[in-house]
Amino acid sequence: MKNMVRYAAVVAIFFARNVFAVTFYEDYDPFYATQPHTMFAAPIKSDSDVVYSIRGKPGVFAELQSRLDGKSLRIWVWEDRITVNGKTYRFANATTFPGEHPSSIYPQSANVFQASSTNGRPALLCLQGNGSGSGEAGRYTQIYLLVDPLAPKSKATFLQLPGLLSSCRAVVENKAGKIAFPKSSYLYDDKHEARVGLLLSYYTFEHRHFSKTDDEIRLRFTEPEIPFRFSVEDRD
């Protein structure tokens, strides 16, 4: 009888520890920040309340300044493009992940992140921003990754990444040392009636193509159809 009591106590402690070990998130940026080998941390500092215009040109832009790999950066974020040290990259000309569609953003909403080069990887800039929309449009972010921004424009790579519940902070360096980013897809209940979680499938961009990796993370919503409180269910 004593052995049974001890066994039950051990089981209770095991389950209690596992229950309390679950971390719940109410925002995706804190979740992405906990992932191994993230590429971006805090965005470049900017005055989000200030925008500029150029006489004779339509639209407004936000200006940011920084240093990357010992060189000065002057960045202008417009509604439909980003300019880095005078080189312009239009959203419409980005290599777009299948299913994504470039659209205008509010320059005031934009954040730009940077990562210095390493021995095996060039420097990176990542831009994210929001545009107009209704319904669930707020779950989507326009995300653009500029690989090798200090190189001549012809040698740089400009990508539009998947935007559903994602962020520049979601970009990582995977186990193979390659830049990877998630494509989010909803998970449904058994009747396929309610969205109960999110599947993050990681991709890389190589040889002018997006390629799926074996890395996946499954998130579980605390309540069906509400993706803004969740926990990690499992990862591959």
Rank of each mutant, 00 (worst) to 15 (best):
H192S: 08
D47T: 09
P36N: 01
A115V: 02
S104C: 14
V11E: 08
F181M: 07
D214V: 12
L127V: 09
N18K: 12
Y32A: 03
A123F: 06
A21F: 10
D27S: 14
Q65G: 15
G197L: 04
G163I: 07
Q114L: 09
L199K: 05
S103L: 11
E193R: 05
A16T: 06
S134V: 11
E26V: 13
F91K: 04
E206D: 07
I54E: 13
V22P: 06
E233M: 07
V112W: 02
Y140Q: 07
A176Y: 06
A94V: 05
C126S: 02
R74F: 14
G120K: 03
A33M: 09
V11R: 10
T95N: 09
Y32W: 12
Y52M: 12
R195G: 02
H101W: 15
R90A: 12
P149F: 03
T38D: 06
F15L: 13
A41L: 12
F228R: 05
V19T: 11
A176D: 11
K178R: 12
S109A: 14
F31N: 00
S167T: 11
P102E: 05
G135I: 00
L64M: 14
V22L: 14
F230S: 00
A194I: 06
Y186P: 00
L68N: 04
L68T: 09
M39F: 10
E225R: 03
Q160L: 02
V232R: 04
K212T: 14
I44Q: 06
M39A: 14
I54W: 10
D190L: 04
P122R: 01
E223I: 13
H37D: 13
R220W: 08
A194L: 15
R6M: 13
